[in-house]
């Protein structure tokens, strides 16, 4: 059984979720290759070659792949698949993987499996549906399996001890895909990255303003935590879109998740209920978030939050 993991990276370094996907790939007990496709991405290939459990690193560096748009990237994977005939193709269930993998599946005429949380056998998988309100088990009868993997459901593979060979393959698709990259506005932060953080402090609508949201930042900084938010807080403009946790935002599973002024709608819970310890601070003792919180504190966040930050 040969498995291909499509790495997520920014042409300089691997995104950590790739390591979780490699652990998922190891469940197929076969050879695992990793594809680094991008522009001037040789450093990433080198980084990937030491990951434990990797057979070959395939490096495809081409100007047409630099922005990692789905159209050329899918063609790149189809080209490689034509040579190597992988049985399984995996990518992280991040916006990168979600954007790319269905394109590859359609071109290979495979029904993709999204957001896999458990690999029961090489053809049987579990995934959450209905915003995490149910877990479905599916058996795929496709010849190839193509799937995105929920990073939080698998441990990270070790970045040491591997000695993979790096194979450079050139991209031979000359097509114009009709898509041009214009720009990427990155929300810069010194804080830990949300999806990989050990601690997350999230704020909701109750914060009331962007200024008040600074109270969340102060607590997060005391704890060395990443910052998350409910959809309502993002919609109201307190924080950028990439802070959203939930069914349609990011999925996190830190050691500690503190939800402040968040009611606990199903769609929010879908993104955080696998956290190890959950703390909820809310003035409404009936708020649904308390039903899943390990520790609940009922009260006004504008009194509790400063006290908590001060006493830490």
């Amino acid at each position: 059984m040969n498995v291909l993991v499509i790495a997520e990276h920014d042409n300089k370094a691997l995104k950590p979720a790739t390591l979780n996907v490699i652990t998922a790939a190891s469940r197929f007990s076969g050879n695992i290759d990793i594809l680094i496709a991008g522009g001037n991405c040789q450093d990433v290939a080198k980084e990937a070659s030491t990951i434990k459990g990797i057979n070959d690193v395939i490096c495809m560096s081409d100007a047409a792949l630099e922005a990692q748009l789905a159209e050329p990237l899918a063609e790149a994977v189809i080209q490689i698949q034509g040579d190597k005939n992988y049985n399984v193709i995996l990518a992280p269930a991040s916006t990168f993987g979600k954007n790319l993998l269905p394109r590859i599946s359609a071109l290979l005429d495979v029904q993709q499996i999204s957001d896999v949380i458990e690999i029961i056998s090489p053809s049987s998988f579990k995934r959450p549906v209905y915003g995490g309100q149910a877990i479905a088990t599916f058996e795929s009868n496709d010849e190839f399996k193509v799937m995105t993997v929920r990073a939080t459901a698998f441990d990270k593979a070790s970045t040491e001890g591997g000695q993979a060979t790096i194979e450079e393959i050139s991209f031979n698709s000359p097509k114009n895909f009709g898509t041009a990259f214009v720009g990427l506005e990155v929300a810069k932060t010194e804080r830990p990255e949300l999806t990989g953080a050990e601690k997350v402090v999230s704020g909701g609508r109750a914060l009331g303003s962007k200024e008040n949201f600074k109270m969340i930042e102060e607590l997060a900084d005391k704890l060395g935590a990443a910052i998350g938010a409910s959809r309502a807080a993002v919609d109201a403009g307190y924080v950028p879109n990439d802070y959203q946790v939930g069914q349609t935002g990011k999925v996190v599973a830190p050691e500690l998740y503190i939800a402040i002024g968040i009611s606990g709608a199903i769609q929010h819970l879908a993104g955080m209920k696998d956290s190890k310890t959950i703390v909820a601070i809310n003035k409404d003792e009936e708020a649904p978030i308390f039903k899943i919180a390990d520790y609940g504190l009922v009260g006004d966040l504008f009194e509790i939050l400063p006290e908590l930050t001060k006493k830490l």
């Binding site: 898509t179 990427l184 929300a187």
Partner: peptide, 12 residues
């Protein structure tokens, strides 16, 4: 809306 922020594309 992507994980890292906001990306802009021009598509034909």
């Amino acid at each position: 809306e992507v994980d890292g922020g906001l990306e802009t594309l021009k598509v034909a």
